[in-house]
Computed example of a mutant assay.
Amino acid sequence: MESISMHSLRSFPLTSVRNPFGKTTTSHQCVNNMLTHATATTPPSTTTHRHTVTHKMPPEKIEVFKSLEPWVAQSILPLLKSTEQSWQPSDFLPNSSQSTDQFTTEVQILRDQSANLPDDYLVVLIGNMITEEALPTYQTVFNTFHGVNDETGASPSPWATWTRSWTAEENRHGDLLRTYLYLSGRVNMTMIERTVQNLIASGMDPGTENNPYLGFVYTSFQERATFISHGNTARLAKENGDPSLARICGIIASDEKRHENAYVKIVEKLLEVDTTTAMIAIADMMKKRITMPAYLMNDGEDPSLFSHYSTVAQRLGVYTAADYADIVEFLVVRWRLEKLEELRGEGREAQEYVCELAPRIRKLQKRSNERSSKILGQGGVEFSWIFNKKVMV
């Protein structure tokens, strides 16, 4: 999963969509909804979620997901890879079972290559790794989705099987990046580990509201964002003379692309079997704006850590506001939203909103870039992850 500041979206109108999913329970009002994602100038609290909203899914909506279980088994589970077919972190790292001399040589090669990586690149790579390491939170969020949750922890249902297997595949990503960074000697592992612990303890509230319609829209967006981000870190690693790291980031990106395909197919199926509800869910998530999963990252020192990290990612071109708009546009085309003809009323309004969204984002991005250019690049920020070295934001 991936993260980025989206200050170009701060001026979006906060219009609402009727809840078609059942009774709504609000534990807290949406306090300052303009902070549904981190921004470079107004980061969210590291301990406060943007809102807490839950839904009781009506039986007919639960039944939609129950009825899709055979389809999930046939069309989604085959997108997973067996353990025997899967790569493992040790495939890309120095082999510790070799002789001490050989292992030391391989570690030295890794260190020599990583020495070429700029500090700002390391900040983004570390932030990506920390995001991946918060995997327990993501599985927890999955299991809040009514109708597709793992009711026992070992449910044989296709939905639960997917969630556990997706988690198992994703688990390798953080393990691989973490071990690479540890061996590189370039980073402060204690501060990184504290950030991971704080992030998992903080949890997350992506605005999915116990609702699988919303949840699968969110994951469709997030997996594509992660594919883009890891792909760009692979490209930059190669450009900076670290082919081993380029392979690492590239293999992770390939996993994210495969997972993206699964979630996009699920929403595509929901649009087929329950068109209006799925369309309203897409608009709902887009109006909330996609909250990146690591927006509560906290090292105990920098209260604006996520904002600073994501601003560096934006500057390096690892993941940008333009990418956000491109993802929205991609999903509109992929799901053929403009061609849905049976929508009426709120469904039609939702369709119009989403289909017109990408150009609006780009216009706002342009204005925001003009404002941001006046304040960005005027100084550096210390990152505890790299021993308090300063990086330009």
Rank of each mutant, 00 (worst) to 15 (best):
A201V: 04
G231Y: 06
F216T: 06
T219M: 14
S254D: 15
D205R: 04
N198V: 02
I252F: 06
I192F: 12
V264W: 07
V217H: 06
R235W: 06
S229W: 07
V273S: 08
G231E: 04
T208P: 06
Q222L: 12
A253Y: 06
Y213G: 02
H230W: 14
G241C: 04
I200A: 03
S229E: 14
F216Q: 11
Q197G: 10
E260A: 14
I248N: 09
V196G: 08
T208H: 02
L271W: 04
S202G: 05
L245R: 12
R258D: 08
T190V: 05
H230S: 05
R258S: 12
P206Q: 15
G203R: 05
E223N: 01
G207L: 07
I200V: 13
I266P: 07
E193H: 04
S244K: 09
G203T: 03
I192E: 02
T233H: 06
K265G: 02
N210L: 04
H230A: 12
K269N: 12
A234L: 06
R247Y: 05
D242M: 09
R235C: 02
N240C: 05
N211M: 04
Y213R: 01
F227E: 15
I192H: 01
K257I: 05
S229A: 15
I266L: 12
T195E: 12
L270H: 01
V267R: 07
C249D: 10
L270N: 05
P212R: 10
M191T: 09
M204T: 08
A253W: 07
P243S: 04
P212E: 14
A253N: 04
Q197A: 14
N240Q: 06
Q222N: 11
T226I: 05
F221Y: 13
C249L: 11
S244V: 04
Q197L: 10
L236K: 10
A237I: 01
E209P: 01
A237E: 00
V196E: 13
L214A: 06
S229D: 11
C249W: 13
R247D: 15
Q197H: 03
L214E: 00
Q197F: 02
